[in-house]
Design a protein around this nucleic acid. Structure first.
Lengths: 346, 346
DNA sequence: ATTAGCACTCTATTGTAGCGAGTGCTAATG
DNA sequence: CATTAGCACTCGCTACAATAGAGTGCTAAT
C-alpha cells in the first residue's frame, strides 16, 4: 500500500471518529490538502474498500472504516508517544486516586478511566496468586459466633462469620491462631491450602471446624477478594450516539453485569505489558459486537498483578483513549509499587 | 367518588400496566363487564380526567393514568395481602441468598429483587449506627506498614493499611491492641470516637499515630462500610419499552452511579416499617422523573437496620413488585435476625 | 342517568415526488 | 498512464398528501 493511500485511510478514519457520519470524497478534499481531486480520492477509496479496510453503508453514502480498517489504523497509523518519563503532568487532569484501601483505589481508577474516555472504565483487582499467609485472627462475637479474619502478605483482609457447634473461649482461639501463625508463616496461599488439608487428615484436631473454615477463607481470598472487577461510569458509554439502538445497549449492560465472564476476558487478553486494543468483531463475546476494548496491565513492583481498560463503541477516540489507559496503568503501578517498595526496606 | 368510578379507574390502570398503550372506552367494554355502554364509560373517564387521575396523550387517544392516578390506585385500589405467616413458599422462587458474608448477601438480594421485578434492585447495607466496639488488631506487614483491623459487634470488619514513621515490633502492637480492647470494650462507635479524642488530648501517648488511625477506622466503619448501596440487575430496567428514550435512560443510570444521593433518598424515605411507593414526579430527583420506586425496610432483631427496594418505570406491575419487595425484606430480616438471635443466647 | 349516533380530531401508515450527497464509470487531458 | 472533469445513477431523507382507524366529546333521544 503506498503512502498516499495510507494518508487517505487515516484521514477517513480520523474524520469518521470525529464526526460519526460517513465520509465522502468531497469532504476529504475540503478538509485535507491531498493535492488531488475528489475523483481521484474516490478511486483511492474504492481501492481501500477492495482491500477490506473501508466500506459504505449503502451505494450513495460516504465511507466508514471496517473493523479491519481500524485494526490497520491502530497498528500502523497512529503514533503513540511512548515516553516513559514525564508520566505526570501529561494529561490535563491528574487521576484522583486518594483511597488508602485497595477497594477504593480500584473504584476510583475505574471512574477516572470512564471520565476521561467517555467509555466504561474497567479495573481488575490485583491477583493474590503470589500472596502469602501473614496472619489469622479469630474473634469471638456473640454466643458461638466466631469471626475469622485472614490476612495476606499483600494486606488483603478476608473475613468470614461462622457458627461453631460449641462455645470456645477467646483464649483458646488466641492459642489456635498463634499455632497457625507459626505453622503457616510466609507460605503461599496454595501451599497453605495444601498444608491445611494434610493437617486435617493427619491428626484429629480439636479445632477441626475452625481449621476447615480457615481453609475456606484462604480459598475465598483467591476466588473472591482477588480479581474482583470494578466497572465505573458505565453511563458514560451512553453518551455515544451509536448506542441509540436500545437492544445493543442492553446487551452491553448485561455483559457488564456478568463480571465473571468479563474477568476471564480481560485477564486472558493481557498476557504481558503494553496496551492492547480489541476491535468490534475481534471481541470474543457476542454481546460486545460493535464495541471495542482498550486494555492494559498494571504492576506492583516488577510483577504484573492486574489489568485495566475501557469498553466503548468501535468508533472511539483511540489515540486519546490509549493514552489514558496507558497513563492510568502507569500511575496505578507507581502507587502500588511505592507501597510494595517501601515494604521491602525492612 | 362512587364505586363504579373506582372500578373503572382500576380497570384502566390495570389494563394500561398490562398493555402499555392508552386504553379507550371500547376496549374496556370488551374486556370488562361494567354493564354500561362505551359512551357512559367515556363520560366516567372524562370525570376521572377532570379529577386529575387520568389523562390522554392527545385528543383521539385512549386514557392513561397520571401520577396522581397511580397514587390513588396504590393507596386505595390494590389489595395487598398482609399475611405475615407463610412468608416462605409464597413466591414461585425462593430467594437465593446463600452468602455467609454480609456483602454477598446484599448483592444477592439486589439481584433477586431485580430478577423478579424486572426493575433495578437496590439494597442499602445495614447501618452500623448501633454497633459497638469489639476488637482491634494491628498486623505488621512489610517494613513500617501496619494493617489495622477494626471489628464491630455486628461482625463488620474494617481494614486499613497505614505507614508509620518508625518501625514497631509486633509485640508492642499486640500490647497496644490489648490496651484498646480493654479500654473500649462494648462501647458504641460514637462513644469510642469520643473516648479516643479525649485520650489523644489527655496524654501524649507513644502510639499516637496508631491511635489517630484507629479513630479514623472507626469513623470509616460508619461512613463507608455501613450504608453501602448495592444495585443489581440494572439492565433489567432496560427491558421496559418506556426506556426507548435514550436520554431518559442515561439519566437513570447516572442516578444509579451517584450512590450517595441514592442512599440519602432511600434512607430518608423509609422511616418506619412497611412498603412505600414513590411515583414519578413524587421522586425528589429530577433524574428519576418518569420512574417509580418501591421501597421497604428490613430488620435485624427488632431494629430496622436498612432499606431495600426497586426502581423502575412508572408503569410497573405494582401489585407484584410490592409483594416481591415485601417478601424480600421479610426474608432478609429473618436471615439477619437468626444471626442476631443466636448471638444473644450467650 | 344512560345511550345511540355522529362529527370531529389526531395518529399512523402508505405512496409519491424531489432534493442532495455520493458513487462509479467513461472519456478527455497533460 | 495517472489524473481529472463530467455525467448518469443510486439511495436515503424529507416533505406532502391521502387514507384508515381509533377514540373522543357532544347532542338528542330514551
Amino acid at each position: 500500500m503506498d503512502e498516499r493511500n495510507r494518508k487517505v485511510l487515516q484521514a477517513v478514519i480520523d474524520s469518521y471518529i470525529a464526526s460519526g457520519s460517513p465520509i465522502g470524497s468531497t469532504v476529504l478534499v475540503k478538509r485535507y490538502d491531498f493535492g488531488v481531486s475528489s475523483a481521484t480520492l474516490r478511486n483511492i477509496m474504492a481501492e481501500l474498500e477492495e482491500m477490506g479496510l473501508l466500506t459504505h453503508p449503502h451505494t450513495s453514502a460516504g465511507r466508514i472504516p471496517t473493523d479491519l480498517g481500524y485494526r490497520y489504523y491502530i497498528d500502523s497509523l497512529i503514533s503513540i508517544e511512548n515516553d516513559n518519563d514525564d508520566i505526570e503532568g501529561h494529561l490535563q487532569q491528574a487521576p484522583q486516586l486518594h483511597s488508602d484501601d485497595l477497594q477504593g483505589l480500584m473504584e476510583e481508577a475505574s471512574l477516572f478511566l470512564a471520565a476521561l474516555s467517555h467509555c466504561a472504565g474497567v479495573v481488575v483487582a490485583p491477583s493474590e496468586a503470589e500472596a502469602s499467609y501473614k496472619h489469622i485472627e479469630f474473634v469471638r462475637l456473640r454466643g458461638r459466633q466466631v469471626l475469622i479474619i485472614f490476612v495476606t502478605s499483600t494486606g488483603i483482609v478476608q473475613n468470614k462469620l461462622i457458627e461453631l457447634d460449641e462455645s470456645i473461649r477467646q483464649q483458646d482461639l488466641n492459642m489456635f491462631s498463634a499455632y497457625l501463625d507459626e505453622e503457616l508463616e510466609e507460605w503461599t496461599l496454595a501451599e497453605v491450602r495444601k498444608r491445611l488439608v494434610e493437617k486435617l487428615e493427619e491428626e484429629k484436631l480439636l479445632f477441626i471446624k475452625l481449621m476447615d473454615e480457615t481453609y475456606r477463607a484462604s480459598q475465598d481470598v483467591r476466588e473472591r477478594e482477588s480479581e474482583k472487577v470494578y466497572i465505573g461510569g458505565a453511563s458514560q458509554v451512553l453518551q455515544n450516539p451509536e448506542f441509540a439502538d436500545v437492544e445493543k445497549m442492553r446487551n452491553l449492560f448485561k455483559a457488564f453485569e456478568d463480571k465473571y465472564k468479563l474477568l476471564k476476558l480481560l485477564d486472558r487478553s493481557v498476557s504481558a505489558q503494553g496496551i492492547k486494543v480489541f476491535i468490534g468483531s475481534e471481541n470474543p463475546f457476542f454481546e460486545m459486537q460493535g464495541c471495542s476494548m482498550v486494555v492494559g496491565s498494571y504492576k506492583a513492583g516488577s510483577n504484573v498483578v492486574g489489568t485495566l481498560g475501557v469498553i466503548g463503541p468501535t468508533r472511539m477516540q483511540y489515540k486519546q483513549v490509549i493514552h489514558v489507559v496507558d497513563y492510568t496503568a502507569k500511575f496505578l503501578s507507581k502507587l502500588l509499587s511505592e507501597r510494595f517498595q517501601r515494604g521491602l526496606e525492612r
